[in-house]
Amino acid sequence: MLLSELLSPVRVKVPLGSRTKTDVLRELVNLVANPGDSANGMAILASVNERERVLSTGIGGGIAIPHGKTPLADQLVLAAGVSPTGVDFDALDGKPVHLFFLLVGPESASGAHVKALGRISRLLRRESLRAELIASLSPESFLRVIRAAEAS
């Protein structure tokens, strides 16, 4: 399963407009929620917040990978966003977060869900790739960078 297959240009936001953790989570959830279905968006946001309550998913290096499981999601979906100014996400290294990946799926896909988390974090280990993603100016160029990285 490739990340570039889970993502699509409409689910990538460059740049993100939010400045706070609460706002940025809402902004990312809006990318994956069914349009016009507020219950769907609320359930997704609640599941993501539940996970953040345990420990911030800002794992350091300017990356955060918020994620959640909810029956209202009908399949595993991924969204991404770039904040050039950075957001205080209560990250483990205390630094502002620039690069966000939001992963949401149903309980039934929990195996694929956790595998995708592993994949994202492994891919983003390369600092040059992180810099390239943060520098991308459009969702299309963001996806191109991901695709190229996964191909290599």
Partner: peptide
Amino acid sequence: PLIQLMFG
């Protein structure tokens, strides 16, 4: 980082 992403 990955371990804490998975396990909190």
